[in-house]
Design a protein around this nucleic acid. Structure first.
Lengths: 332, 332
DNA sequence: TAGTGTTGTGCAAACGATTACACAAACGCA
DNA sequence: TGCGTTTGTGTAATCGTTTGCACAACACTA
C-alpha cells in the first residue's frame, strides 16, 4: 500500500486474489447491484489491501460517461473569473465531477484546444469565454449540449445558457452619478472584440440616453490594472470627462489610481469611477469601489443547476437569467 | 458537421466509409506510422467530412497514457496561485496536456478527491497545496511520480520537487527594516497548520536573530484580505509592534489598510509591512508593497521542466531550487 | 529472373472495466 | 414435495482505440 508500485492492479488480478470473477469485483464497486454483502465486504477488504481502485478510463469507455467537465475560460488570473471558477470547481467536486480547464488566452489556438478536450468525451461543457463563438462550441462539442454564459438571449436553440442582465443596475448607477452633478461620461472597454463588453456598454449607454446624455469618450484596455491605468491617463489628458465606467473592477482600480496619482483627481468629488463584476477586492478598504456587481454564488448555482438537469437527462435547453445590482462604494 | 449529432462516429464506421480497416484509420492519425500518404490524405478528408476524431478515452486505455495532469491546489481564488496556475495551464496546453484541477479547500475531502483523480490514470501530478501530506500524495498516486512544490529539501526519495528558498531575500528585507530603526516585529501567519508557513516564518526569524531580535507577537489568519485586516487590528491593539511580516501579499494589504484606517498609522514611517509572493497586485500604484517575491515564470518553467523529464522517461527524482528576492515598495 | 528489402494494409489481440444473459442454489409457500 | 421466485455468481460480449504479426505487392540489386 505504501511505496511506489509502478503498475496498478487490475480487476482481473484482484478477482484471482479474492477467488471471484472480475464481474463480481465490478459489482462490489457499484452501489446498487446484485451481490452478496459478505462477498462485497471481502472484496473491498482485499481491494484496500492491494490498493485497487477501478480504472476510470476503462469505466468511461464502457459507460459512455466520463464524469469530466470542460471549463472554457479566458484566463484564471483575472480575479473575477478566478472567484467564479473556485465556486464552480467546488460544486463539481462535490458531485464527483472533475473539471478540465481550457484557458483561451490570446495566443493559444482555442479551437484546437476545444477539439482536444472534446476527444476526452467530456460529459459537460461550460463556456465562460467570450473569445469563442457559440457556433464553434456547438460544432466541436456536438455530443454534449454546451452551457454558455451569455449576456443576451440566444437565438441558437442547441445551447443552454445563463444570461446576465445589468440594464437595471446600470440605470441605478447612472441615475446616482447624474444626480450628483456629473455630466461627461467615458467608457473604458475591456477589449475591442468582445461582444460581452459591447453589451455591458450598452446597458450604461441606454441609461445615459434616458438623461439625454451619451459617452463623450472611449478607450480600450485588456481588463488588466495596467491597461486601466494607462488608458485612463490618456483619456483624461485628451478629454474633460468627470465619470468613467470601466469594463471590470480591476481596470476601475487602475483608472482610479491614475486619476489620483497622475492628475491629482479624487473620487468621487472630482471624478466618478465605476467598475463591473463585484469581485471581493472591490470591497477592500483601500478600494471601496462602486461597481455593477454580479452575485457569483447565485451565478455558479445556476450553472450547476443546468448541469444537474442535463445529467438527469433533461437536456432542455435551459435558460436562466440573473440580474446585476449596484455595490455602492466611495468612488462614485 | 454542423448541428448536433448525438453520437460520435467511431473508427470502425469511418473505416467502412473510407473502404479501409480501422487499423488504417488509427495509423492515419499517428504521425509516424507506416501508411501510404495517399491513403492518409483520403482518410483525413473523410474524417473531416464526418467530424471524426479519435476517442482519447479509448486511446488512453490502450496506450496507458492519458495526457491528463492533476493539479492539486489550495484555492484558485488566491491571486498568487491563480497567477501560477495560469502560467502552468498555458504551458501544459502547449504540450497537448490537459489539466484536471483539484481544489483542496478546507471542507472538501482532499484524500477522496485525490483518489478520484488518480483513477483517471493521470500522467503527472503537481502538488501545490500544503494541505496534503507528501506521503498521502505518494500513496494515492503510486503509479506516477508526483511533483511537489516544497520549501525545504525532502527526505522522501520518491518525489520530484521544486524547492523555494527565501532565506537570503528575507535577510535583505529584515536588514533594511532594522536599518530603518524598527525593532519590534510581529508575524502574521497564513494558517496555523501549514508547514510552508512555518518555514517562511523561519526565514524571517533567523534573519531577526542575527540582529539579536525575535518576533514579539504572532497572529494567524487564513491568507485572505479580511483576515489580514482583522488580525492586524487585534495585533496592533494588544502590542506595540512597528513591523509586521505577513504570510502573503493579500494579508499584507489587509494589514496595511487596518493600520491606516483603524489606527491611523502610515507605512513605512509608523509601521513597516511586508508581504510574501510578489503577486502582480503588489506592484499596483495603490499598494506598492514591499514583499518577498518569487519569480512565477521561473517557477512554472521549473515545474514544466520536471514534467518534461518525466515524460522523457527520466523519472529522477528531480529537484530544482528557486530563490525569492525582495520587491521594494513603499510599505517598508 | 530469382532473391531481398521495403511498403502498405488487414486481422486479431490487447487495454480494464461493465453488464445482458444464463444458471445454480436458496428460499417461500401451498 | 414440487414449483416459482429471488439471490448471487460466472461467462462472454462490448466500449473504441492501438499495435504485433502476417502477408501481398512492389522496387531494387545482382
Amino acid at each position: 500500500m505504501s511505496g511506489t508500485n509502478r503498475r496498478r492492479i487490475t480487476s482481473k488480478e484482484l478477482a484471482k486474489l479474492a477467488g471471484v470473477s472480475s464481474a463480481t469485483i465490478s459489482r462490489a464497486f457499484s452501489p446498487d447491484s446484485r451481490i452478496g454483502s459478505a462477498t462485497r465486504d471481502r472484496i473491498l477488504a482485499v481491494a484496500r489491501e492491494y490498493g485497487y481502485q477501478p480504472n476510470a478510463i476503462a469505466r468511461s469507455l464502457n459507460n459512455q460517461r466520463s464524469r469530466l467537465v470542460a471549463l472554457v475560460v479566458n484566463a484564471i488570473g483575472n480575479p473575477c473569473e478566478a472567484e467564479e471558477q473556485q465556486l464552480l470547481v467546488h460544486r463539481l467536486q462535490a458531485r464527483q465531477l472533475l473539471p478540465i480547464l481550457l484557458c483561451c488566452a490570446d495566443h493559444s489556438d482555442r479551437l484546437q484546444l476545444m477539439r482536444l478536450a472534446s476527444t476526452y468525451q467530456v460529459d459537460h461543457v461550460v463556456i465562460f469565454s467570450d473569445m469563442v463563438s457559440m457556433q464553434d462550441a456547438v460544432d466541436i462539442f456536438h455530443t454534449t449540449r454546451p452551457i454558455i454564459v451569455s449576456f443576451e438571449p440566444l437565438e441558437n436553440e442547441d445551447v443552454s445558457n445563463i444570461r446576465i442582465d445589468g440594464a437595471l443596475g446600470a440605470g441605478e448607477i447612472i441615475d446616482k452619478i447624474v444626480g450628483d452633478g456629473k455630466k461627461r461620461f467615458a467608457y473604458l472597454s475591456g477589449t475591442k472584440s468582445s461582444w460581452i463588453d459591447k453589451l455591458r456598454r450598452k446597458w450604461f449607454a441606454d441609461a445615459l440616453a434616458r438623461h439625454g446624455l451619451s459617452f463623450e469618450a472611449e478607450a480600450f484596455g485588456d481588463y488588466s490594472y495596467d491597461s486601466g491605468f494607462k488608458e485612463a491617463v490618456l483619456l483624461l489628458h485628451r478629454s474633460k470627462v468627470d465619470a468613467i465606467i470601466c469594463g471590470n473592477d480591476v481596470m476601475a482600480i487602475g483608472a482610479r489610481d491614475a486619476a489620483r496619482r497622475v492628475l491629482g483627481k479624487n473620487t468621487p468629488e472630482d471624478i466618478a469611477i465605476v467598475g463591473q463584476d463585484g469581485i471581493a477586492m472591490a470591497a477592500w478598504d483601500c478600494n471601496d469601489l462602486t461597481t455593477l456587481s454580479l452575485d457569483h454564488v447565485a451565478f455558479m448555482d445556476a450553472v450547476v443547476e443546468v448541469i444537474e438537469r442535463h445529467e438527469a437527462g433533461d437536456e432542455g435547453p435551459h435558460s436562466i437569467t440573473l440580474a446585476c445590482t449596484p455595490r455602492w462604494g466611495s468612488t462614485a
